[in-house]
Each structure stands twice: as C-alpha cells, then as structure tokens.
Write a protein that binds this DNA or RNA. Structure first.
Lengths: 145, 145
DNA sequence: AAAATTCAGTTTCATTTGAAACTTAATTCA
DNA sequence: TGAATTAAGTTTCAAATGAAACTGAATTTT
C-alpha cells in the first residue's frame, strides 16, 4: 500500500510539533526574549541543578555547540551561573542564578498554561496515554538508530 | 505546581520528534541524498499533483523560500517538473517526473517500513488514538495562535 | 482603463547552524 | 611517570536559514 501522507505518523508528528512550538515560542521568545536553545537549556538546568554542558546536551538533544552558545548568552544575561567543577577541571557546573530562577518560575507557569490550553478536551487518561505512546516511539527510535 | 519537565508534553513531543526524524533521515538523506525540505516537498507533490509552491508551503508548513529552493534543486535532479499555470502566470504547477515518481515510490516504501518499526508494540487502536490525539493538539494550537 | 494594491515566487543579505579543528584537562597505556 | 589517547567545551568557517527587498503578474480601486 502506498504511503498515505495524512495517516503517516511522522507527518502528523511534525505538524503537531510545529504548531505547538509556535504557541510556546510566543512565551519564551515573544515575552522573555529567549531563543529556543536558551529556554531549553534553562529548563534542563532548572530540573538538574549543577549539571555540565555535556549532560545538558544529552538531556535536551541539543548540539554541544548550541549549548555552549546558549550558556554564554544566558550567563551574559545573568540567568545562569558557572561553578568550577571540583571533580573535572574541563567542565563547569551550571545552576540558575537567583534572577534566572525567578524568571524561570514565572515563565514556566505561563508555559504550563499554554500546555493546558493545547490539551483542552483531552481526558486525563488520554493525556497519559499520549505521553506514554510518545515515550514508546522515542524508545523504539533509539533502538533502531 | 511547578513545571515537571518529564511530564511536560512539548518536551516529550520534541524528544520523540527528534528521534523519529533521525530514523527517517537515514532513508531520505542517507540513501536518497535528499534534504528534509526536498523530501517533504516531494511527499506533498506526490499526494497533490499539480500543486503550486504556495500551497506546498501551507501543506508542509515550510517557509516559501525553503520551498522555492527545494523545488529548484528537485527540478535540477529531474525529480519534479514545472508546468505553466494557465490560470495564473505568476505561479507554476508542480508534478513528479516519471523518475521522481519511481524514486518516491521506492523511498516511501522504505519510510513506511521505518514507521512500522517505530510503532512496534502499539496496538492498531493505540496507533489510531495517537494520530487522533496529535491532530487534536494541532487543531488546538492553531486556534490559540 | 489607468493607477494602486496585492500576490507568487526569487534573490539578497544578515543571522543561525553545525561539522571540524582547536585548547586544555583527564585518563589510559607503556 | 611520561607519552598517547580520550573527553569537555570553545572557536572557526562553510553551509543553511529566514526576513526583507525585489520582479513580474493579477486584482482591486477610482
């Protein structure tokens, strides 16, 4: 059977990803003047305080060059701080600054509201199923590649 | 409640999208030497023969500049053809060439196999639910933004 | 119907991106 | 321990991207 684009999962996934990202970017870019890599790095640092750039890159699936540049800019804006890593002189441990934490708290509350709007009409079990199915696909993809 | 990154839908969506795209790109890029915009343009043209660049851009959510460049390259490779549009001298109608159709048929069969691997372990009703939920999110996103 | 406006698609140019080279530090091997 | 290798993060440079200007055609306005 030929490829039916409308029923082809990667096609729908991309459409949905693009649409959702557009909504989120109005917050992190429009209101907080952060690039996508900057916001993503902040989110990882907020979750895993004292993390290295390499681990951020792995967690956020961002190129290490992009992480390096995002961290440089975030530090220039005083949103993240670099602490020397006692265990490894090559890397630094990153944390949110006080200001960075405050901004992240405000911004993430807004992003959660957007998420809630996006999921309007979904039952809690549908929401759970969606996350679970996406995680399964990701796991499958990582075993293939 | 603060943002829990692991349960935050856009985070999971992006991870899944990145992982899936990586798998697909091994086919369209690795084996067929097409860029992502090129493969996406071909997919739309294969579905909607005699379509204009503007309509491709809308259907694939690609920037019109990217469509223009993809079409130029696809034409240079003799995969798509431009037919003058009788109704509108500004635009051209695009179709797959004979060779383009043949390559698309082969490539899309391979991409369908990858999709099947990605969805290993999903029941048919889970697969349907996933597509439906993604479409709902897309629709919600488009009403918000 | 002539002028003004809008639209399709391309080109230009400034910015973003990412692969490869580089720097410095840690680890492995001899 | 000293040389060779691997790893973290940055810099460089070439390619990809996208916003704005542009070209020529269609549509709208007067």
């Amino acid at each position: 059977m030929p490829l039916q684009l409308n029923a082809f999962l990667p096609y729908q996934l991309r459409r949905t990803y693009a649409a959702i990202n557009h909504c989120l970017s109005e917050v992190y870019e429009g209101r907080y003047e952060l690039t996508q890599p900057e916001w993503r790095v902040m989110a990882i640092v907020a979750r895993d305080m004292e993390i290295t750039s390499t681990d951020i890159a792995a967690a956020a699936t961002i190129d290490k060059v992009a992480v390096s540049r995002a961290v440089t800019r975030l530090e220039a804006k005083n949103l993240v701080e670099r602490i020397p890593n006692q265990n490894d002189g090559r890397s630094m441990l990153l944390t949110l600054s006080r200001e960075g934490q405050a901004i992240y708290d405000k911004m993430s509350a807004e992003l959660l509201k957007v998420e809630a709007q996006l999921m309007q009409g979904l039952k809690p079990e549908e929401r759970d199923a969606l996350l679970r199915l996406l995680a399964t696909l990701e796991a499958n993809a990582n075993t293939i590649a």
